[in-house]
Amino acid sequence: MAIRQGRTTGWVKSSYSGANACVEVRSPVRASVAVRDSKDPKGPFLAFAPASWTSFVGAVDGGALGRA
């Protein structure tokens, strides 16, 4: 995982977030999947290897991580 500063295009917010602040994902990308806080679009973002992001989303979708 790397924290990167900068602007990018193609950000997507979950349809489940409604008007609430949420994380946004820049996808699809070749080398990494970028994730940021939608309240701070010019702020930093995290970059994950595509396989890591896919594994994380699968774990969330499958309920393996529980609820906070």
Rank of each mutant, 00 (worst) to 15 (best):
S55A: 12
K13D: 00
G18R: 14
A51S: 13
Y16W: 10
S55C: 01
A64C: 05
K39N: 02
V29P: 00
K13E: 01
F56A: 12
S32D: 14
R7N: 01
A68Q: 11
A21P: 01
S15P: 00
T54Y: 08
G43N: 06
Y16K: 09
W11D: 02
V60W: 12
S14D: 04
G18A: 11
S38W: 00
S38K: 11
F56W: 08
V35C: 01
L65Q: 02
Y16Q: 14
S17T: 09
G63R: 15
R30Q: 15
W11L: 01
W53I: 01
Y16R: 13
D40C: 07
P44W: 11
V25R: 02
A59H: 12
L65D: 02
W53V: 03
T54N: 13
G58V: 12
V23Y: 04
G66A: 10
R4D: 00
D61L: 15
A2S: 12
D61N: 15
V35A: 05
A19H: 15
K13R: 08
S38A: 11
S32H: 09
M1V: 13
R4F: 08
A51C: 04
P41F: 13
G58Y: 04
S32E: 11
G6V: 00
G62Q: 09
A31P: 10
K42Q: 10
A49I: 03
M1Y: 11
A34R: 14
C22D: 10
N20K: 01
R7D: 06
S27G: 04
L65M: 10
F48E: 04
V29C: 12
F45S: 02
V12F: 12
A34P: 05
R30W: 05
A31F: 07
G43E: 06
M1F: 14
A21C: 15
A59Y: 13
M1H: 11
S14V: 04
V57Y: 05
S17E: 07
Y16I: 06
W53D: 11
A47I: 01
S17M: 04
E24T: 01
F45W: 09
A2I: 12
S15A: 13
A64W: 07
V33P: 00
A59L: 11
T54R: 08
E24W: 00
R36Q: 11
A64I: 07
P28G: 08
Y16F: 03
A68L: 07
A19G: 12
K42E: 11
D61G: 12
V25I: 15
A49N: 15
M1E: 04
G62I: 03
V60Q: 08
V33K: 02
T9C: 09
R67K: 14
A21M: 14
S17L: 11
S17I: 08
G10I: 09
D40R: 03
A21W: 04
M1W: 05
D61W: 08
R67W: 10
V29F: 13
G18L: 15
L65N: 05
P50Q: 07
R4L: 02
T8N: 10
A59C: 09
R67V: 03
Y16C: 07
A59K: 13
N20T: 03
S14P: 02
A21D: 07
